[in-house]
Simulated assay, not measured.
Amino acid sequence: MKTPLLTCLLALGFHVATNAQQTKAPETLRPGLAPAPTTSPAPAPATTPAPSTAEIDKLAEEAQKALFQSVDKGTSGATKGTSQNYNSNTPMRLPAQRAEDPSLWAKDSVHKIALMEVAFGGARETVMIELFPNDAPQTVNNFIDKCDSGFYNGLAFHRAIEGFLVQTGDPLTSDESARTKWGTGGEEKTVPAEIKLRHRVGAVAMARRSDKVNPERRSNGSQFYITLGNYGAIDGKYTVFGQVVSGLETIKRISIMPVDANDCPVARIEIKSMKVINQKGPMQLPSMASGDGLRYIKPDAARGFVSRWFHHIW
Rank of each mutant, 00 (worst) to 15 (best):
G202A: 08
V204T: 12
V204A: 13
A207I: 02
S210R: 12
D211H: 01
D211V: 03
K212R: 14
K212G: 14
K212N: 14
K212L: 13
V213H: 12
N214P: 10
E216P: 00
R217N: 11
R217Y: 10
R217P: 07
R217A: 07
R218F: 11
S219C: 12
G221L: 02
S222C: 09
S222L: 07
I226M: 08
I226H: 00
T227M: 06
T227H: 05
N230F: 11
G232K: 13
G232W: 10
Y238Q: 06
G242I: 02
G242S: 05
Q243I: 08
Q243K: 00
V244P: 05
S246D: 00
S246E: 00
G247Y: 01
L248K: 02
L248D: 00
L248V: 01
E249F: 06
T250Q: 02
I251C: 04
K252D: 01
I254Q: 07
S255W: 09
D260Y: 10
A261K: 15
A261P: 10
A261T: 15
A261D: 15
N262A: 15
C264Y: 04
C264W: 03
P265H: 09
P265D: 13
P265M: 10
V266P: 04
A267H: 05
R268A: 04
R268T: 13
I271D: 00
K272R: 12
S273W: 02
S273K: 12
S273F: 03
M274P: 05
K275F: 15
V276D: 04
V276T: 06
I277L: 10
I277Y: 06
N278W: 07
N278V: 08
K280I: 14
K280M: 08
K280G: 07
G281W: 08
G281E: 02
P282Y: 06
M283L: 15
Q284D: 13
P286Q: 05
